[in-house]
Design a protein around this nucleic acid. Structure first.
Lengths: 237, 237, 237, 237
DNA sequence: AATGAATGAGCGTTCATTCAT
DNA sequence: GATGAATGAACGCTCATTCAT
């Protein structure tokens, strides 16, 4: 049944997160639930598919957050801040999902998985970029942003995405960021994102204080919406 | 004796890169070289240490490139471009090392490794950030850069680092970046790095064309130096 | 209902032939047809029974060929040639059936199968020997053959059967028969069968050229009959 | 060590013979000896190799018997009788080896085995045919045998081989040979082999009684030699 | 009659690690 | 210091069979 698959995923998730892909074994999953190993294979043909299915859960969640952020009213830069808030919210509240997504980028999972689930993953990724691109596109159309010639919205998005992704990964995997002189990576990330906007001449110009205030207010505004989204999504999982 | 260790690493490296951490086993390493499994254990107490040792090789290399970049004459923004060139050069010519470093950020390797080698890794990372920080520091001191108050050079570096790292990882792990609308991620990365500089008001201001020209010229200038460095370093490995 | 069983067999057959008994599993059969695993168990209590049922199909076919061969007019030696032609035809055109029969002689199938199907198999085998024995019997009665005292027709048949069976198996399983110096095992087999006849003094004596000519002509004569038989039999399967 | 391999084979052999290839599992072998499963894999990379190794033992033995038979003095037909005796002796006293050899002809073993052991098997087979061919060759050269034109010694051997192999297999796998009317397949086989000789005009002509007497006497003569050979060979195994 | 989820023992294989030589 | 046989738990996966629906 469908419920069975969700149970399997809910058992597999903590194993994957706490002890890594290597430690995720069908034996271990089976031993932690009431069903036998063979039963798990009726739902997932191999453990890689389990990881993919877990990743899909997270990507679904994030896309929902992004969709909510993008649909906010206001100027393009304000809406971009909303997306940034969605990003921050996602990493804060769904950090596990973020880490699972990271896994996909590292371990050799793709070879053994069905094309169907692979496509699902790709669609979610594409769709997230697309959502943010609409904000950039709106900025261009309204004249708030004049990107370098030959630079399309997705390429602009790529920069923000790289800062967000890179910051998060480095922050959580670099041993002793504080010792190096980066005490609050979240604040640093916000400032960099804002500076990048300014660097592109994205109107209205904001100094770092204005940006941080904006981010805080946006967070407050969307917080309950976001919580509602992840609550309802997780009920389905 | 020391040579033995290097031989082991040179056998382990392609296994790790081609088939992943899971596939790296002492058995397989031993079968591909003239020494027995037991001998390998005399040099590396477990396979995680091998991975760490491989990572150290790469980080040594990159620090050498960074050192060369940082010692270039010229304005701070020009020197930062040199560091950028070093980054690009590293990923182009030492992509394997880059991937091994990524591995460290994902797989559960740290638990089983000696504190000594862990510290070595940390020192190289700190040292790289430190090198780049000197450029930022110089920019601040010369007045070319006025960072937001409370933002120290390492935090500035963090932004550039995040863009570089994030871009590379996303570019090499996102299925179908081109389909999404990002045909040349290298160019996009350069533009974003430049925009970030501009966003911080780093003098002299540069538009994207000037920056790309600068990067190209810097590359040409340093190319042979860089090649010499990786050649000599690899002889030692 | 009966058609269902035939469908199952037609799915199982290529699996058995291409990948062997080990690879034949109820799961695999079910996955290749429209019915579920449980349904298959309603028709065949285990996979051994499927193999037996497949073998019966082949043995039915061969007996039909033998019956046609034996009913030919002419001298006993001519009729024996007809049986030989049936053998050759069977192996050429129903090689799969021949291989399945071989399987029965090797794999431990008998323990798990019903006595009923086992008896069916035995009856077909006995019946084939019986058919050929009638030819030998006729030869004895007509005086064309004087077998050693105490040697009954079935024992004579046994020799021919052994040459045919042994030749076929050796030819198809001996790696590199040609390299050993046996370029055309079919021709060799014919000569040996003829020599055995001559050795028993079976009248009329034939040299090897006459025998091969006889075999060729008999083949031409019976070919269309044989084809008709396997066509009609296979419709029933 | 070498002794360990022999121990493994001696455990595997009865499993293979009593319950078939399917039942031969590394688990079962390990459970029946003092060494662990992993140890077995140090000697044989998979179970197919074990079967091949067992087959080699038998083929070595048979070739030794053939070599002894062939080196007997006397006319070619007498020496051929010696080979026949070797065959009969082999099947009587090394029936297990004969059955293992049969296995090779049926189950898909070749795919997973090393080319080295495969070649060993082929060499033994070729070598056995070669030994018998020398007898045929001698018969031709002495004028005792005039084979059909274009029929080389190995092709002659093929006929005898087919009768021997086919008879043995049919005798041991046909359910109820006696019921069919073949009470003593050994006697039948002898008569057929003799008739085949006569059919080729192999001199001196022998009737079935003379042949059976010859075979009996040859058996008595060689019996102790043969026993000695298998005893000494089995000590090495 | 048909289904197909569930089972769980079993399979072939791997591998980090130990340790006597 | 080097060896490599030995270990034995663990792994991913299969599959004949059962049985409630």
């Amino acid at each position: 049944m469908e419920r069975r698959a969700r149970e399997i995923l809910s058992v597999a998730r903590p194993i994957l997160l706490e002890d890594g892909f290597q430690a995720l074994s069908m034996d271990r999953v089976a031993s932690q639930m009431e069903y036998a190993k063979g039963t798990i294979y009726n739902h997932f043909p191999n453990k890689e598919e389990i990881v993919l299915a877990l990743a899909v859960q997270g990507m679904k969640l994030r896309r929902a957050l992004f969709a909510k952020a993008v649909e906010q009213p206001g100027g393009s830069r304000h809406r971009l801040a909303c997306v940034g808030a969605a990003c921050e919210f996602f990493v804060s509240n769904c950090f596990d999902d973020f880490r699972i997504e990271q896994l996909l980028r590292q371990v050799n999972i793709w070879d053994k998985t069905s094309e169907h689930r692979q496509n699902t993953i790709r669609e979610y990724e594409t769709s997230c970029i697309g959502l943010v691109s609409t904000v950039v596109q709106a900025a261009v159309e309204s004249g708030e942003l004049q990107p370098p010639p030959g630079m399309d919205p997705p390429e602009i998005v790529f920069g923000f995405w790289a800062i967000c992704y890179g910051s998060q990964v480095l922050a959580h995997s670099s041993p002793g960021l504080k010792e190096v002189g980066i005490p609050d990576f979240g604040r640093a990330m916000r400032i960099h994102l804002n500076s990048l906007c300014n660097g592109f001449g994205w109107q209205p110009f904001m100094n770092w204080q204005q940006h941080i205030e904006l981010m805080d207010s946006v967070h407050q505004q969307l917080s309950s919406d976001f919580h509602q989204i992840i609550t309802s999504q997780r009920e389905d999982q």
